[in-house]
Design a protein around this nucleic acid. Structure first.
Lengths: 345, 345
DNA sequence: TTGAAAGCGATACCAA
DNA sequence: TTGGTATCGCTTTCAA
């Protein structure tokens, strides 16, 4: 036991200080570039830092300063959905450029998972939290209120958020799509999506959609909610199921573009012409839509921008700037060519 | 100044202890379910925990025990690429089920970004690191070696890893694809991909591919590396560029499926028949391939499984189990119908 | 320009 | 079954 060292074999600040022949405090000041030391001292300390390969322990820093960390917890339902992957990318890129780190939470669309993750991530003293959706369990809501840190709810715009919110109004977006399809002359409109234990943005969207369809004189929407992921293949077989149950359906609105593509391919397999035999509308405007021969009717939401906006609100709040409570990021209907054009009906 | 409290207004263990009329240590034992206290004491403490809404500060826990945290740093090049999103999902799900949290790093395919992220994430005393790729900067390599924590390099199998590695041999995978295409009778084979500052798995794959093509009697591969993302639209216009420069190309291998779909659509736009006029092969076997009318020739890699395997190796090592250094996750060529079948040529 | 001491919130260790 | 005390690595505060 030649050298006395701490339990881990990491180099600590006091070791650097000792090597440089100064006090911990002086070394600490140099490392934070706080000023209040001579050039000579600074050079000496920095030399030892390099030499010993010192890496600060930020756990101790946060702990000592009783500050929050530079972590930001980010919860996302799942990454199989390209849309959320894009949102996450927007968030992490922006956060990273401001020196923050993302602690990821995949909630798999359940409030229970979200609640557990919130409890855990809060125990790490994060600087803030970015959560997908506006529906949280009661315990989660309580923890969030007591956390005393900035919180951004994204995706589903919350007009009375816990703290801040950015996204779009899914009810309105669903309503617009419904009105558009009715305006195109469709009357037997179906819906294919997935179902989860709890309400979410898709539920809200569907509600708006149904209201527009029914109010616009369309028949009652034929709905099919699968217990599956909102992906390509479920869109394919979901379409098969819906058409088997309701052969008169003349147009289908899908929970997202991936499902719509699945439906499009099912139609192709069965020799159904789109949009003359059946109309197809998706949601999200995935990148793949741009290269497909037939432009998918969809709803464009600026996903990357949404993520960036969420990160910007977080950073703004953390740096004490005034930040608006709600931000509507907007959506845009892409007419496409997979539904009949209203002027041509 | 009625109550004396800490700088933040969070409830601490000692406040719980005081409220329950016991010492910090007793409260600590109860919270960790360590045993060595009466039922009455336990109930009393837990009641106060609920009442005060106490959340432990894990920073202090890690710090006190001089342990590592439950964080695992995970670096991924980007999330625009579905493949990496799937890998990340596999990792985070598995890690989460063992009580670990993912600290995300998006390196954007650059060693500099990776290095900066490594430095930062190490300062949070992570339990381990999972890194995509096997090429790291010299400083990064040094930090990783000194970190003294488990490290898993994924994606590109590293036969002499820093610590552990899981993935596939991209050279072999590229070679197999090249041999297959040559075996199908193609001789003027092109490649469309993207280029980055540093070598990566795609580079390795291309090298293997070229070797097979050239060794198999194919012409020198016509390569086009775009300075763009490896996505649908670059696949579309990259194909246009490649065919303009080399009109004799009879088959194109793409960096990934997204680019291949872009190429497929370009061919459709130009009235080129696939595979009779031109063969198309992708890489990754994206989910969308399963619903497309024409099965894309591709290479299947079990992405989700890869992520899970990486997380399992990490967890195994953390719990002291013996873990193999290298794990080949395997790949499988999907013949598809976008290249001529070898038996039919 | 520098340093000594106290303390952040928990746990380890030893004593009662 | 309990509790006191030292301690982790760093920063804050106060003094020199």
């Amino acid at each position: 036991m030649a050298e006395k060292t701490n339990k881990t074999n990491k180099v600590s600040l006091s070791q650097v200080a000792k090597a440089a022949g100064v006090s911990k405090m002086t070394a600490s000041r140099v490392l934070r570039a706080e000023g209040g030391y001579s050039d000579k001292t600074r050079d000496l300390v920095m030399q030892k830092v390099d030499q010993l390969g010192y890496l600060p322990n930020r756990l101790a820093t946060v702990f000592a300063g009783d500050q929050t960390s530079t972590f930001v917890g980010v919860s996302i339902p799942d990454l199989g959905n390209e849309v959320f992957a894009q949102v996450l990318e927007g968030i992490d890129r922006k956060l990273g450029s401001f020196g923050h780190q993302t602690v990821l939470g995949l909630t798999q669309h359940t409030q229970k998972e979200e609640e557990d993750w919130i409890r855990t991530v809060l125990s790490w003293q994060p600087a803030g939290l970015i959560l997908t959706g506006r529906f949280h369990s009661a315990r989660a809501t309580e923890m969030l209120r007591n956390a005393g840190i900035p919180i951004v709810e994204i995706w589903d715009l919350n007009s009375s958020p816990l703290d801040m919110s950015v996204g779009i109004n899914h009810f309105d977006a669903g309503f617009d799509m419904g009105r558009y399809l009715v305006g195109c002359g469709y009357r037997q409109i179906g819906y294919v999506g997935t179902s989860h234990d709890t309400a979410n943005a898709a539920t809200t969207r569907l509600a708006g959609f149904c209201k527009a369809v029914e109010g616009g004189g369309g028949g009652v929407t034929k709905q099919l909610c699968l217990h599956d992921t909102a992906a390509y293949y479920p869109g394919f077989y979901g379409t098969e199921q819906l058409l088997a149950a309701h052969p008169d359906v003349d147009c289908i609105f899908y929970q997202n573009d991936a499902m719509a593509f699945g439906g499009l391919q099912f139609a192709a397999t069965k020799g159904l012409k789109v949009p003359s035999d059946i109309g197809v509308a998706g949601w999200g405007d995935l990148p793949i839509a741009a290269v497909m021969p037939q432009r998918l009717t969809s709803m464009h939401v600026p996903h990357l921008k949404l993520g960036q906006a969420a990160a910007e609100m977080m950073i703004g709040r953390l740096s004490g700037e005034p930040v608006p409570t709600c931000r509507d990021i907007g959506f845009k209907l892409i007419p496409g060519s997979t539904v009949r054009h209203p002027d041509l009906r």
